[in-house]
Amino acid sequence: MVRYGKEHKLATRKRIIETAGRRFKRDGIDGSGVATLMKDAGLTNGAFYAHFESKEDLVATAVSEQLRGQREWLTSFESGRAGIEPMVRTYLSPEHRDNPEDGCPSAALLDEICRCADPTKQAYTNSVLAIIDDIAARLAPHDPQSVRAKVLSVYALMIGTLQLSRSLADRRLADEVLEQGIRNALTVLDAASER
């Protein structure tokens, strides 16, 4: 029997989390069984329990990791208010809409996360609030708490806009929904930053 080192185990765990995150966003949590997830990672089903206690444990971990990646993505935009508009436009773009496996876990999974167990909901909440706090600090660097609720509602608006755009059969209407979502989000965020 071959024993692998700690680094190998960590790399394997990371691979499972990354491939699961993409699969969950593409096919949903319920539509992604452990066998499929492990096959995506190039592993056998038996290896799963060496890394996770349950599928729910993997879901919580993958969602947190996906949101951590989204938080890192936010840092790619210019700091302060200057980065907000390109951030909103990129989020509410046809490219993001058309590639859910590469995008926001909230827009892809929110309807399923609300049915997950409390540890997954808590992991999601903690990760989302970190994103919200980062954006609030851009808008109101001296008092981020003053705009936190507005930023959270704009985040919800953007998620809903992206979900609706993904669900519409009429491509032109779907694009119009994205454009209006951009205008709505920027109007609210601009008002928040002027406080």
Rank of each mutant, 00 (worst) to 15 (best):
T36E: 13
K9A: 14
C114S: 07
G181S: 03
A185E: 02
S106W: 01
K6Q: 11
T61M: 03
M38L: 02
E18K: 07
V63L: 03
A50W: 05
L110I: 15
S165L: 07
Q122D: 13
K150A: 11
L92I: 10
Q163C: 14
G181E: 02
V177S: 13
G83T: 09
T12P: 08
G46C: 03
Y91V: 11
K14E: 15
G80H: 09
G83W: 07
T125I: 02
I29V: 05
F77R: 09
G46W: 04
K6C: 00
S193V: 00
E179A: 14
H96S: 14
T161L: 10
A130C: 05
S153I: 03
G46L: 01
S76W: 03
K25L: 00
G5V: 02
A41N: 06
G31P: 06
L110A: 13
G31I: 08
H96I: 07
F48L: 10
Y155A: 09
Q66G: 12
V128Q: 09
Y91R: 07
V2N: 05
C104Y: 06
T187S: 12
V151E: 05
F77E: 07
Q180N: 12
V2C: 01
E179Q: 13
V63C: 04
S193I: 00
T125E: 10
I182R: 15
E72F: 02
G69W: 04
A35T: 04
W73P: 09
A123N: 07
